[in-house]
Design a protein around this nucleic acid. Structure first.
Lengths: 125, 125
DNA sequence: CAGCACCATCGATCTGCCTGCATATCGGCA
DNA sequence: TGCCGATATGCAGGCAGATCGATGGTGCTG
């Protein structure tokens, strides 16, 4: 599972909702699973949480290693995973790399997981 | 990662929302990650989708192996993971084991991921 | 009762991932 | 220019998980 990259973006366009209408295809399942896999890690969930609750909604690596209790390379690795999944965006200012949430990313995932409720797909069986 | 079991239920009560207010604790992160890990697999996503879109909203193992292209033990294994995560419920009728979605389970996950009702947190630049 | 279909579990293999150490890279500063 | 601090990358060990074949248990059914 390497280049998830724009996986999230590609998923937002087609109305693939695993719990909406018809069974999802293998390719869609793999894309969604890829993004979910990026989320399914305690360290990464805490990273997202820490970044979101940081002063300006952004944080650099040096601010995150201590709260997590993980080494700097490990934190950098997790941030890379989250960024490639489309959940974080990176901005380098000077020597520091600032990470912030991609606003709609998590919301998109939540929408994909939300049962049809009222968002009508074309066909109700 | 064995008995996630009631992990979902335990999570629904406290307002732990990774992207809501303050940084989440390690224990909460691990519980949420456990459930997300159950979701973060193509085969399991397709299983949920297949079961949801089945005639009565339920399906037995024998109906699921063919569409997935996986062996019966493997399918059974995935169903076990999903059930222990609180996403599926199992009912044995005769020789067949019928699985159906736990209605609020996925919605709970979606809610945990969605920031409380105001999605526009800060301002983009 | 005997055979059969459905399903769960076990054991084994193979892949993938988390983590840290060492190292490379890049920008600022004296 | 040369050093230092902040990040990223390479490499490797160790563990978790996905998959399958074989096996065992359990209700139908003839």
């Amino acid at each position: 599972m390497e280049f998830v990259g724009t996986a999230l973006a590609e998923m937002t366009m087609p109305q693939i909702s695993p719990l909406a209408g018809e069974p999802i295809e293998r390719a869609d399942a793999e894309r969604l699973a890829g993004v979910l896999k990026a989320l399914a890690d305690p360290a990464r969930l805490r990273l997202l949480s820490l970044i979101q609750s940081a002063p300006e909604g952004e944080a650099c690596v040096c601010d995150l290693t201590a709260p997590l209790g993980l080494s700097q390379p490990t934190v950098s690795h997790h941030l890379r995973i989250l960024t490639e999944a489309g959940l974080l965006e990176r901005e380098k200012r000077g020597v520091w790399a600032y990470y912030r949430l991609v606003p709609s990313a998590i919301a998109t995932i939540a929408d994909l997981l939300t049962p049809p409720r009222k968002r009508a797909t074309k066909k109700a069986r």
